[in-house]
Write a protein that binds this DNA or RNA. Structure first.
Lengths: 200, 200
DNA sequence: TCGGATATCTAGCACTGCTAGGATCGGGCT
DNA sequence: AGCCCGATCCTAGCAGTGCTAGATATCCGA
């Protein structure tokens, strides 16, 4: 038997409302910080009552996670564009590194949702959701040609961590934002350098 | 006129109680996480009522900040010991890097207070409190001999950020802890390598 | 022993995430 | 056409949060 058209309409409206919740949560977080994204304020902005939120998401954290997942998709796309901006591996790395930091700076709340909050996302190489694995793979794509004998996974992780550290320290006011581009350049230079021979 | 002995005793008791608050807050955070450090639980453990906390600290954040300041002192001492473990700059750097990561892993809540929470601490090169500047200077001490023409401040900041990134990603489950030592070794190798010539 | 300052607690406010129970509304069947 | 049932939604409330005003107790010095 075919699905009823009214049921189709309801499901569509439901999906619309779900994405509305995610969009409003993200906007509110970007405007006033995640601590301002309370279930009451969120409910008010979507013009529904609080319990409606819980018919879409298990809890507040699940909403943050939904925003984070959106972010992983966008980050992957952004990094892919930067990587393809040059065929020279070194130049491509520089472009990707700057793109990563710029992405985090442009949407601090989004980046926070992805990497600081939303700790319920599985991060293992097997269990992580696809958008997250894709973002990580994009870093591997640009660092792979430069690994030069180093363990690629570890190399990617260290490069990622360095970028992540620059981002988080800058966001908390620990680092002066004006110098951030120079730091990225310095980091890229270090990643391009051939590793010193391991000491015996 | 000399200060009254009873007044001296009271001030001493007050100071004792203040350090008791900080110690209990730290223990509770390390045992159950910072979100479990509520003013009620804290008051209960020190066997006083809630308002007593506010006669010592302006708000909850100030308590976190006090714990963080303790941490900066301890981190500085830990890094100094590691740095003096070898006269070879490269070996000293490796020792300091591992000491940094081990410090964060041993006391995750303490590290979190220092670098993730407690955002009310001024971090500028002038305004930052002394223990914080000392910790930063310790990194400069070990990286200075290796700067080799690079901007020392930027070099230190990038090295610090890389370590900080490894720590925070590992704490959130983003990185496998078992490989952390190898990542630190890889990072140290990259920091020791001479930088590639800047592209024209 | 008493007065007064000092120290402390009780009770409460406005807010948080989350949920149980009742009201309301609309579609499908007789 | 009329009814009924199921889905949808909201009101009201719970336990907990950071923080504070006002009342209470305590202790010291005269």
């Amino acid at each position: 038997m075919p699905t009823q058209p009214t049921q189709q309409r309801r499901e569509r409206e439901r999906a619309d409302r779900q994405s509305l919740i995610v969009r409003v949560a993200r906007e509110l977080a970007e405007a006033e910080g995640w601590e301002a994204v309370t279930t009451r304020r969120l409910a008010e902005r979507i013009e529904y009552s609080q319990p409606v939120l819980y018919s879409h998401f298990a809890n507040r954290t699940a909403i943050v996670t939904a925003v984070a997942l959106e972010g992983f998709g966008e980050l992957t796309a952004t990094l892919a564009v930067a990587r393809r901006s040059s065929t020279d591996p070194a130049t491509a790395l520089a472009a990707v590194a700057h793109a990563y930091v710029d992405f985090a700076t442009a949407g601090p709340a989004l980046y926070e949702a992805m990497f600081t909050l939303a700790t319920d996302l599985p991060f293992g190489p097997e269990s992580a959701p696809a958008p997250l694995q894709a973002a990580f793979a994009e870093l591997g794509n640009v660092l792979g040609p430069l690994a030069a004998g180093r363990d690629l996974v570890l190399f990617v992780e260290v490069g990622w961590a360095a970028l992540h550290g620059l981002v988080t320290l800058a966001r908390g006011g620990r680092l002066d934002l004006a110098q951030q581009a120079r730091r990225v350049d310095l980091l890229v230079g270090q990643l391009l350098a051939l590793p010193a021979l391991p000491r015996p």
